[in-house]
């Protein structure tokens, strides 16, 4: 137990907790209104009253970063939920039943994987319309193939275990086997996949918003802020750096967390 408290895992926990705290505080308090413009103080450098400076409309960057954390967590959680839900249904049926069910589902997943994820998301959003809801759906669908493969492989792995066979020999049905015997054991790899997919979702959202397809103005989103900061990269470098660092912290935090959970799992007998 002592050894498994690795340093990356601790860094991940700290980063994620920091960002989560920031998000929770933003529900009750932000130093300025996130969308409150003040043309008198455009592109101000970090100062005591604006710790992260202001943007090209004179909005407080700290407040917008805090508000943007809400968007990031919302998109991360709900798209992972969507991906997990469909990934579970597809992966569990493919892994448990095997045969032609497996064949059909996995060829469908392969077809999905043939598209680069972000391209698929762009396509979906262009067909519908840009916005928070469609971004979540697009990123959720993007993560379905990954979840399906991981869930399928753990189902295939545990299906051959003797305790599953013994339970079949005692007359247990498919649902009982899946719920009582496979799922509790497959929980950890699925959790790791979900954590890693969470950071992928945030990165995806940033990318889409950067392209102008994700969250629409004036609502703050990290990717969108990065896009807005781009023209001022020379005159106001802190804007782009701060937003970039925040996105990196989030993605790194969840990646380290996921790796940490996986390492903990490996050391367990």
């Amino acid at each position: 137990m002592k050894k498994s408290q690795s340093i990356p895992w601790r860094i991940g926990i700290v980063l994620v907790i920091c960002l989560m705290t920031m998000m929770i505080i933003s529900f009750f308090y932000t130093p300025f209104g996130p969308n409150e413009m003040n043309t008198g103080s455009r592109l101000e450098a970090p100062s005591f009253s604006h710790p992260f400076g202001t943007d090209n409309f004179g909005r407080d960057i700290l407040s917008r970063v805090m508000q943007g954390a809400q968007t990031a967590f919302l998109i991360g959680t709900s798209s992972v939920f969507i991906g997990l839900m469909f990934g579970f249904i597809l992966g569990a049926s493919a892994g448990y039943f095997g045969g032609w069910v497996d064949e059909i589902i996995m060829r469908f997943i392969d077809a999905m994987l043939a598209f680069p994820g972000i391209l698929l998301a762009i396509m979906l959003i262009s067909v519908f319309e840009p916005g928070l809801k469609n971004t979540i759906i697009a990123i959720g669908i993007m993560s379905v193939p990954g979840f399906t493969r991981i869930i399928r492989s753990s189902f295939i792995q545990y299906k051959t275990y003797d305790f599953v066979k013994a339970s079949v020999a005692k007359g247990a049905g498919a649902l009982r086997i899946i719920y009582h015997h496979i799922l509790p054991n497959a929980f950890s790899p699925i959790l790791v996949a979900a954590t890693l997919s969470f950071s992928g979702a945030i990165l995806g959202e940033s990318g889409l918003s950067y392209l102008g397809l994700g969250v629409q103005p004036p609502d703050p989103s990290w990717g969108r802020m990065l896009k807005e900061a781009q023209p001022f990269i020379v005159t106001a470098p802190w804007y782009v750096i701060i937003v970039g660092v925040i996105i990196t912290m989030m993605v790194l935090g969840f990646n380290l967390l996921g790796d940490g959970i996986r390492d903990k799992q490996d050391t367990k007998a």
Binding site: F163, G171, H180
Partner: peptide
Amino acid sequence: IVFQDPYASLNPKKTIEWILHEPLEI
């Protein structure tokens, strides 16, 4: 049936009582 490997033939996430209870429940 009783299998060879006693380390693989019991579900590691369940208590012995649950394991013995399951067949009766089925």
